[in-house]
Design a protein around this nucleic acid. Structure first.
Lengths: 151, 151
DNA sequence: AAAACGTGGATAGTGTTTGTCCGAGATTAC
DNA sequence: GTAATCTCGGACAAACACTATCCACGTTTT
């Protein structure tokens, strides 16, 4: 099981945006974290499509959160970047091959698929229990403004 | 987030093995489920390396479980196929770029990494709550022997 | 000896991830 | 109006993992 690497970047960016006093350009966000500017821009676009951030175009533009940091969960960011498709996709093996079950016994989802889905629900529930506000509590806004100000 | 497709095959195979009265060859397991013989063989080798199944070589050989089905959890199979590496790997972004934190503030894992690790623990705990014995309860051993017997 | 079977490596095809580049459009400052 | 700054969106390519196949080899039973 693997999570897209962009998730980490996006979470750090959201934390920064939650404590910034003005929109931050994507290139600036990349410099703050020492990551690729062009690739980070891609991920920020995904966050924008998901409605988590808004882009202010033009000069002095940049990205800002659309909601209160306490109203954005880690799960929101993960799904924006990584997609909301389930990690396990049942291919209905039980209906194939010599051991195939008749269709009338397959109205209920396969037991394996049920276990996988339940585990994934646990994972999502856990991620939804932390917000950007929680993560940003330890970041000093004054320090952030100082670093951003003299850019 | 994505789970390897072989996980599904491996789980179905373990369920079959838990209810079979004799070792089952890999080619036979593939036929039972209508999947690729050569590729399934690869996954079975992974199960063998993980110690979940044992291969009997030579004529009339095949695979069998090494333990009681009730002692093999879904998590065991998932980790055997997909690996036990965490889905989220923290790259210590907090120590990079202009906003980098000094090393002395980084003795404790980053908050983002903590949230991800906790969510993954929930996922694993959930998968460990179901065993092969649970999954195999609905498979009729008589029917399996009938299908296997006249191969 | 012969047949059946797993082992492990070599080899491809395919798809996803990661990352770059550039032109177009929007907005502000002068 | 013009220039500067910034985002947007798509095209593009390299790297990697996943999926899948094949074969030479050793082992075991008949």
């Amino acid at each position: 099981m693997k999570l897209s690497g962009g998730v980490e970047w996006a979470l750090h960016c959201c934390v920064v945006l939650s404590r910034a006093s003005a929109p931050v350009p994507s290139a600036r966000l990349a410099e703050l974290h020492g990551v690729s500017k062009t690739y980070l821009a891609k991920h920020l676009q995904a966050l924008a499509r998901a409605g988590l951030v808004r882009a202010a175009e033009g000069r002095d533009g940049g990205y800002a959160l659309t909601r209160e940091p306490a109203a954005i969960t880690v799960l929101d960011v993960v799904e924006a970047i990584d997609g909301d498709q389930p990690a396990f996709r049942c291919t209905e093996i039980r209906q194939q091959g010599e051991l195939a079950l008749p269709p009338e016994e397959c109205r209920v989802p396969c037991g394996i698929a049920r276990v996988m889905a339940e585990a994934e629900r646990s994972w999502r529930r856990s991620l939804a229990g932390t917000t950007i506000a929680d993560l940003g509590a330890s970041l000093d806004p004054a320090r952030l403004d100082r670093v951003l100000g003299r850019g």
